[in-house]
Write a protein that binds this DNA or RNA. Sequence first.
DNA 1: GTGACTTATGCTCAATATGAGCATAAAGGG
DNA 2: CCCTTTATGCTCATATTGAGCATAAGTCAC
Lengths: 300, 300
Amino acid sequence: MTTQILIELIAVLTAVRDDTPQVMTIDHGRSLPSGPLENAHRSLQAGVRAWVERQTGHPIGHVEQLYTFADHGRMLTTEQVRTIAISYLALTRSHAGETGWRDWYDYFPWENAKSDTGRTCRAHIERRLCQWVAGMDNPATRIAQWQRCVSLFAIGDMAVWDDELVLQRYELLYEAGLVPESGCAAADAVPGQPMHHDHRRILATGMARLRAKIRYRPVVFELMPEEFTLLHLQRVMESLSGIHIHKQNFRRLITQQQLVEETGAMEENTGGRPARLFRFCGEVRQARQFTGTKIPLAVP
Amino acid sequence: MTTQILIELIAVLTAVRDDTPQVMTIDHGRSLPSGPLENAHRSLQAGVRAWVERQTGHPIGHVEQLYTFADHGRMLTTEQVRTIAISYLALTRSHAGETGWRDWYDYFPWENAKSDTGRTCRAHIERRLCQWVAGMDNPATRIAQWQRCVSLFAIGDMAVWDDELVLQRYELLYEAGLVPESGCAAADAVPGQPMHHDHRRILATGMARLRAKIRYRPVVFELMPEEFTLLHLQRVMESLSGIHIHKQNFRRLITQQQLVEETGAMEENTGGRPARLFRFCGEVRQARQFTGTKIPLAVP
DNA sequence: GTGACTTATGCTCAATATGAGCATAAAGGG
DNA sequence: CCCTTTATGCTCATATTGAGCATAAGTCAC
């Protein structure tokens, strides 16, 4: 008798509200929205788009496949049923405050270097990882694992924080027993809300993908309103990447790449000098959608 | 009654032989190796690894998921059966000339700028695309599509060839009716061997992924022998990316990144001055496997 | 052996890109 | 009017990159 197979589509639906990246959840923030692949869906992408739009009522700008999971350990109801989960990253422009939206950094506080909680969380993790490697018997593995901690969490002066390694950091914390997953609560976990099954890991995958992608494809604009100031754009990129950006260099890069054009109007409520409003002008030369949107990094 | 679902694993298994990237095929070069997901496989990755290693007898160094397809148009036997194809990129060190290995560029001749056939093929494509857009009624779409041709195939002096856009170029050719797919033979197609189903598209996905990845992760070394000269490494990277690399700059970049170390031995059969042999020293500081392997581009 | 040819390897130089900061402009609020 | 805030233009040192020159050290033909 053959094993029955269930196909599950899981979405990391992301929007930015008040310069804070958010993710759509269900089940009181414990799960990502997911649904079975229906026979009517012509393609996987169409399936995700259909039920996400139905569920949230918002048009989705960008949909991209993340990863397909099928581990036997994962949601195995019985030996006769195997679940295959195909995860997607979806971006939507904004939302009017419906329920279900949660901050990215509720789940990954250490990924946000711009907040105080983020920094204290990192300091906390640093101490815990230090204890973790100290308890290892084999000196070789201890050194290797410590090296891994150092480069992933930028411990010490030399190392630089790589914002794209969200998943690798999460997996390190998981191995170190500092985050609970799939029900088995870690005795004394690091800050950050857990999720059911492997959904927190899938969220990490989506965050990493988006952080990587905004560097070389103009996808940020899928999350921006029609018109925006350069500071607004900068704040969104900072909140997504979790790092600080040098203001003048950011403007230089954005303007010289000719991805945006002035609308002519001004934003008056800046709290200081009024700012020019811009719009994404990618539609005009949509064909060159391959050119990048480089962002200048900087340590705070 | 529920639709039955079949899970198919498809591998883009790549090796480099005589400085030529090759892909493992079956069915006289018409298909990529594929197999059903078995119940015994603990995970998808393990499944791919298991049957690829069994099939080729070679250990696989690197396996990475590419994409999951489930279009209804795709291999739909009956309405009751839906096939989900999960594709993987797998790298292996070498092969002793077993059957089934084919050159990448048999399928994508235009992707190889280093050969004469590649250059003539590009010239041919350029003319055909020119005809294609000339036949369009709507001037707006004609301009937009021509712009797309220009940037994808680097037509004219301004544009630069982006080696990572393998899939986008293939899809453009497909839209233009210049490549046959899934049986329906294009009347007068561009050079390049077709494959069954969407396998050629999957190969394009794998090529694009590998070309992108060798730029920022040290995966080339999965395709290299234990010891190699810098020219050998350069030739492998050139053959994978299909572009020319400035020799001195390449050495500068590789050596200063400290990814390789001298073995002390020399390669004598260089045809010129003997060359130092190097080995990948990533294992020593495996933890920093995130640092990149930048390659210096250059137009020939 | 000599000269032509091949590949290896070290080094320079100009053009760009990047990181950091100074300075000024233009708004609001006491 | 002074202070704070944000916007915006500009400079400067440094790092990275693209391109090429020059020399070293082999092979091969004669």
